[in-house]
Amino acid sequence: MNSNSEIKSLLQKFVLNQCTPEETNEVIAYYKKNQLTDDFPTVEDIQQLLSEMPKMDKQTADAIFMNILSTSKEEGKEESVIEMPARKSNFRKYISIAASIVVLLGIGFFYKQSLSTKSAEKQFDFKSTDIVLQLENGDIQVISEKNSSIVKDAKGNIVGNQTGDKLVYENNSDPEKLVYNTIKIPYGKKFRLQLSDGTFVHLNSGTTLKYPIKFIAGENRQVFLDGEAFFDVAKDKKHPFIVNADNLNVRVLGTHFNVSNYPEDTVTDVVLVEGSVGMYSSNEEFDALKNTILKPGFKGSFNKENTKISTKAVLTDIYTSWINGGLTFRNMTFKNIITKLERRYNVTIVNKNEKLANEKFNASFKEESIENVMSYFNEIHGINYTIKNNQILIK
């Protein structure tokens, strides 16, 4: 690699994961020579790491290069110098930064971050202690119930105000298109949210809700739920409110209802307290004559496997008691109960008694500690356990 053009060409090929092993070896050799260090991965190590990363297109590679350059300028970090003629100073800086950051596979970090943005929801650690708000541009804002904060849109306008365990969105903005925020509630916590139309939402632990910062006239008011939430929907006959829970849509005009859509459950449950609710598959259009319409005091259960909906009369207080700290299990397997206890109390439960896993239980608790809940299972069902720190071992 005697010419600048060859160096630049090889580095670009390296970023695009197009180098042969021999060319990769040339890049490494060049880096070692100019950085005066042997503390560097072997060509085999780097080829292995590169093979684990998908190839990116040239436009993405160029964009990441520019990001690295601009970041280096902003942070004012020292740059390693590669001796070149003065008239090549800009290129020298480019090669210096590219060689030191790209060859060290920092490029993989930036690229993997960009790839993971869409799946950030699944990567969120629900066992953390932070309530997290993801803004429309992907930025993360941590919410502390002990403090107050404001939420801004991409233009810097205030769209929401948070105080304690409640976040309220304003109704004074006028976006041209739907702009979404996503809130994620960790294990062991609950939160309250007021949407721009006045709809009030109670969010249970381990729940994610995606919603517009402002609903748009002429369009349905649609939100996306993973987990459990109780909705007190502001009435608006012209704009139906739709909760999407994976493959189920729940459609209302203004009412009170609970939706439970946790991944371990085989069904998504909708419990209607007041008003009227329509239930239908998310790939269908709503049809009042064909779809399931719930009446107050009924629960609709959407089977995730066969997409069928069944209904039955229930005591709604049982299914909404979680808002005030209650906890209810109805004909539930013990392995599912464990998952829900972990979510509610942010603990880790290890079950060594495999026979218990598929046994079904019924139980209801008011606002109880995890110690009292486990004591109940021990007294009534003879389940032996030990608690140490935040871990429970069932023997």
Results as ranks from 00 to 15, higher is better:
36 L>W: 01
17 N>F: 12
105 L>V: 00
280 Y>K: 02
367 E>I: 06
1 M>I: 12
171 N>S: 14
86 A>L: 10
308 K>E: 12
350 V>M: 05
318 I>K: 04
41 P>Q: 10
360 K>H: 09
206 G>P: 06
116 S>A: 15
63 A>M: 12
303 N>D: 15
350 V>Q: 11
53 M>S: 11
6 E>Q: 15
284 E>C: 04
366 K>S: 14
166 K>S: 08
277 V>D: 00
244 N>K: 15
274 E>N: 15
105 L>Q: 13
42 T>P: 02
30 Y>H: 04
190 K>N: 09
190 K>I: 04
217 A>T: 14
230 F>E: 03
126 F>G: 00
39 D>P: 01
90 N>R: 12
187 Y>I: 04
181 N>P: 05
119 S>L: 09
357 A>E: 14
52 E>Y: 08
276 S>K: 15
288 A>Q: 14
328 T>W: 04
137 N>W: 01
55 K>H: 12
380 I>T: 00
131 I>N: 02
304 K>P: 14
39 D>W: 00
5 S>K: 14
134 Q>S: 00
276 S>F: 15
239 H>M: 11
385 Y>Q: 07
364 S>K: 01
267 V>E: 07
334 F>A: 03
88 K>D: 10
345 Y>D: 00
13 K>Q: 14
290 K>H: 11
365 F>R: 03
295 K>P: 00
137 N>Y: 07
25 N>C: 13
233 V>I: 10
128 S>V: 07
284 E>I: 06
266 T>A: 09
53 M>T: 13
